[in-house]
Design a protein around this nucleic acid. Structure first.
Lengths: 163, 163
DNA sequence: GTCGAATTACTCGGATATATAATGTCCGAGTCGGGCAGG
DNA sequence: CCTGCCCGACTCGGACATTATATATCCGAGTAATTCGAC
């Protein structure tokens, strides 16, 4: 059996953004600290954070006290933004137009111009997915977390001060 | 940039099912003919069709006049069935529970039992996707095609008789 | 004591390896159809 | 001529390569803080 899987980077990115919000440092937070917070490979996390910078979700600062900061508040960052930043803007279903191959190649050119109906249906489904992702901000998710763990920000700040 | 992509097999599978319906043979259609219809690698297509058999979308017949037939009419086959058969039933977003690692491990066990809010949001979005896929049958798609190319079945039957 | 420049340690960024999954190929087991012999 | 058995060719099915992608790592370029010296 095969498996359509999303990159781990999406999960890492979302949690990192939430953590950056909770820490609420005035200064950049370096990759090493974020990696330590989730016990993941620092250099690989760095790569994902670079993608978030390119998507204007984070801003990076070089130098001795450098690191990453949120480029805008969490209520301006949607899950769609995160997914698009890490996975790219392409659709999951890629149409290779096999309908045009073989005997299909002899159908009138006027008709071949019309979109593939299989692809159209797939696109509609993916659109629903993207709609839901775009409708959810990281602020929404953070709010749900705080509802269950009110002291999450305080806990994370205390931990950050100790490392 | 990375890329979350769905297997090509999904596209092949959908088009093969449509073709099987249009051909409307009383007998099984072998892999070779289906592969010729779309100019794809026969052995690899065979692999995808096997998955459809395991999912009870097609039935296979061995032997000299063997091949594949639809296990049920197109209005009983949804895009969700196709995707699940080829890609597997797992969610695209896989939660690795990184919230429990690092400082998160010291939070009360009672809270860690609750689901990850990032994952919950992702699941909701995927559910919308699955809903749309499950709401679309291959009969719907086939109907849309016939609307633009009324003679599609006749064309395919004529081609099939000639190969 | 204050200012400024060189130094140094730290961080991001991209180039480079490795692991894993998707893609593609090949060969064996099974089976149906036809041919052949016998009645 | 009809019937039943045997043979052979064709097809699926899964095991086996190959290629592409995701994962992981490493090192260089650049920067900001710090230190050291001069005024």
């Amino acid at each position: 059996m095969l498996e359509m899987r999303m990159s781990q980077g999406v999960e890492w990115a979302a949690h990192c953004c939430l953590l950056l919000d909770w820490l609420d440092e005035g200064r950049p937070v370096p990759t090493g600290k974020l990696a330590a917070a989730f016990e993941v490979a620092p250099a690989y996390l760095n790569k994902q954070l670079q993608a978030l910078v390119r998507a204007d979700i984070l801003v990076s600062t070089a130098g001795v006290r450098g690191g990453f900061e949120l480029a805008r508040p969490l209520n301006k960052i949607t899950l769609m933004d995160i997914v698009a930043a890490i996975e790219g803007p392409e659709d999951a279903f890629e149409c290779t137009e096999i309908r045009k191959r073989g005997p299909g190649s002899s159908t009138p050119e006027r008709i071949l111009r019309m979109p593939c109906q299989v692809t159209t249906a797939m696109r509609k489904a993916e659109l629903q997915w993207r709609r839901a992702l775009a409708a959810t901000t990281l602020a929404d998710i953070g709010h749900n977390v705080v509802r269950h763990v009110p002291k999450i920000a305080e806990n994370m700040q205390r931990w950050y001060a100790s490392v």
